[in-house]
């Protein structure tokens, strides 16, 4: 069964074709990273107009790369939320129009939940050991930091979430305070490789509490106070050390909470997904901790961690298997639980 996935919830316009919820036949993402870095700071592509211009060519490219036409597609899956309503509506209207014109069944998925289901995606040459239900999933990105207990492809229970800023947002804002470029997360990851993570012992926010919730707002202020202490004269070495120390604090919290969730729920499988799951330190530390505790860990490759439509197609397949379809009265749901 071939599903066409369409994703326009945030900055990227994406489409992908996935077979039976797992085999990725194509995954096309039109990312605005190039546009962002031109400004040397955090600059989004927020205009839904960009999605409108990009959606048709991106879908066409996804079909062409999968060597299929719309006549071969058995279902269409589209992100219904959370996200910016104007952006969501572009993908949703496009998906509905194809569904209506070609008589193809339609379903809608939650973007955050789809991130977890990316753990089942595979490609020729990609060795994937998919998780077994139930598992804990840490979805961590620019807009979200959520721990799920996933009982089934379509049964996701939120067991922890950020109370203020998302982890990816903390990375981007810290990068901005340190005067680094965009994307901030990748810049900090690169600098931290040669820095001393014990240079500053940043407070691990919310770690002492027995909860599975996160708080990353305060660490931003801690970085700012450090930076101010240097009065604008931060050497390259100090920059590396500050990056490493900051990254270590965030990663420490994410890993500790994920492992705490595993222990609390008693599951033996753990998934990490979302854009921040591309961070090399997070991947390594999670691997070490999961291995030490004897829990099986699955982190999708970076191209399926950051926003993509293959995960939307994958999730859509499982919803259709359960008989969950959407009608043409489907609407965007910008405030979906995250």
């Amino acid at each position: 069964m071939l599903i066409l996935g369409i994703e326009t919830s945030c900055d990227d316009t994406a489409a992908g074709v996935v077979e039976d919820g797992a085999l990725v036949r194509s995954s096309v993402v039109l990312s605005q990273d190039g546009i962002h870095s031109k400004y040397g700071g955090i600059v989004p592509e927020l205009a839904s107009r960009q999605h409108i211009e990009a959606i048709a060519p991106v879908v066409e490219e996804a079909l062409a790369k999968a060597s299929v036409t719309l006549d071969c597609v058995d279902g269409i899956s589209v992100t219904e939320g959370p996200g910016l309503v104007g952006s969501l509506l572009v993908g949703m209207s496009f998906a509905k129009a194809i569904s209506f014109a070609k008589g193809i069944p339609l379903t809608a998925v939650n973007h955050i939940e789809a991130h977890s289901v990316a753990a089942f995606l595979t490609e020729p040459g990609l060795a994937v050991k998919p998780p077994k239900f139930p598992f804990v999933s840490l979805v961590v990105s620019g807009g979200h930091t959520t721990l799920f207990l996933v009982n089934d492809y379509t049964a996701h229970e939120v067991i922890g979430e950020t109370l203020d800023d998302a982890a990816g947002e903390a990375f981007d804002k810290a990068a901005k305070l340190l005067g680094l470029g965009y994307p901030g997360g990748a810049m900090i990851d690169a600098l931290a490789k040669n820095g001393n993570p014990a240079y500053v012992e940043f407070t691990r926010p919310y770690l002492a509490k027995d909860s599975l919730d996160f708080s990353f707002s305060g660490i931003k202020t801690a970085v700012l106070n450090r930076v101010r202490g240097f009065n604008g004269a931060i050497s390259d070495d100090v920059l590396k050390d500050l990056s490493a120390s900051f990254q270590e604090a965030i990663v420490d919290v994410l890993v500790t909470k994920a492992m705490r969730a595993v222990k609390k729920t008693g599951v033996s499988h753990l998934v990490a997904a979302g854009g921040v799951a591309c961070n090399s330190r997070l991947r390594r530390k999670l691997t070490e901790e999961a291995s030490a505790y004897g829990v099986s860990l699955c982190i999708p490759p970076p191209r399926f961690c950051s926003d993509n439509a293959a995960m939307v197609a994958g999730m859509g397949f499982y919803k259709m298997q359960k008989g969950v379809f959407a009608g043409l009265d489907l609407n965007a749901n910008p405030n979906m639980p995250r």
């Binding site: 400004y39 600059v43 989004p44 959370p82 807009g143 109370l163 998302a166 947002e169 804002k173 910008p334």
Partner: peptide, 29 residues
């Protein structure tokens, strides 16, 4: 729950006397 809308651009909080629209233009160039 009030969270930072820096990435989402807008959060809407309901259930009170009136709706509260929380916008964040941080990412705008």
């Amino acid at each position: 729950r009030v969270k930072s809308p820096s990435f989402t651009l807008v959060n809407i909080y309901e259930g009170g006397k009136f709706a509260l629209y929380h916008l964040d233009l941080y990412r705008l160039s």
